[in-house]
Design a protein around this nucleic acid. Structure first.
Lengths: 148, 148
DNA sequence: GAGGTTGGTCTCGAAAAGAGACTGATAAGG
DNA sequence: CCTTATCAGTCTCTTTTCGAGACCAACCTC
């Protein structure tokens, strides 16, 4: 199976993987949420080949996750910003961070703390049911196919 | 930067990406949560080369996300099951599904529905603050480094 | 006009993906 | 018995993609 077939599958995991299922894309998104916007900054922070940065940013723009906007005309300079679709990826990034904090960090604890501005407390993200607001784990979910 | 350097970075996104930041790994995890356990089933559902299935399953076992357990002695047959660490990835998969349902599915709607067993309703997962239980978006979060 | 900044592209060797044949132990069917 | 099937892989070989580093072009500052 190839990349393009992936996006065509009737599965939201596959379709999402076609966009973000790649180490560098994930790290670029992380940096986006940290406020990074310019080509050179992405490249410097990741320490990877420029051609890869170009390829990934282009993919994300194509997918509508980022926009490429000129912030200066002469010479032409661009910055990459999250669209609404991109901002909505925050839940995924947050879930990834939470798992990494819990299972992949050493005795020195997680490398970053996250504070919820509204309540002023450090928090860990939790996944809840949109209907009853209870916490949802793997065992609480029953999956049904959409035959429509 | 290489895969191994990734895991060593002081960033939970990077460390998690080192485990699941790959198309196939993500799809294998999806299948795990759907109850798939055997080598041949993973291979058939994904339609990818056996060698890749082997490599990915081994990685996940090494990382402690899956266990490889014999379910039959003669001939030796194994099955792959999620550990607690693996079960905890459910929040990530759920967030990925939710995003894919919302942004990557066509007019026919999402390919699957998820019902919360506890309340009996179809739901979408939401990310909330562990302290105040309010929904958290990208703009609600302030990040601080752990200098300890 | 030397050197720096920004946002790329080009080239080429290395790594990974992917197809498919092969293995080895066992069981089931005729 | 002999054939075929199951299961969990391994091995080989070709194609594709990654990734590092050099190069380029337009502008700016000193």
């Amino acid at each position: 199976m190839k990349w393009d077939d992936l996006a065509a599958q009737p599965c939201s995991v596959a379709r999402t993987a076609a966009v973000i299922g790649d180490r560098w894309t994930l790290l670029i998104l992380r940096d986006c949420f940290l406020g990074v916007k310019r080509f050179a900054d992405f490249q410097a922070r990741l320490g990877i080949a420029r051609s890869i940065v170009t390829a990934r940013l282009n993919l994300l723009v194509e997918e509508g996750v980022l926009t490429r906007q000129p912030y200066q005309a002469l010479p032409a300079r661009y910055e990459y910003r999250l669209t609404d679709k991109g901002m909505d990826l925050h839940a995924i990034v947050l879930a990834i961070v939470a798992w990494g904090d819990r299972w992949q960090s050493g005795p020195e604890g997680p490398p970053h703390w996250r504070r919820h501005k509204a309540c002023g407390c450090d928090f860990t993200p939790m996944t809840v049911c949109s209907v009853c607001s209870e916490v949802v784990t793997a065992r609480d979910v029953e999956i049904r196919e959409n035959l429509g």
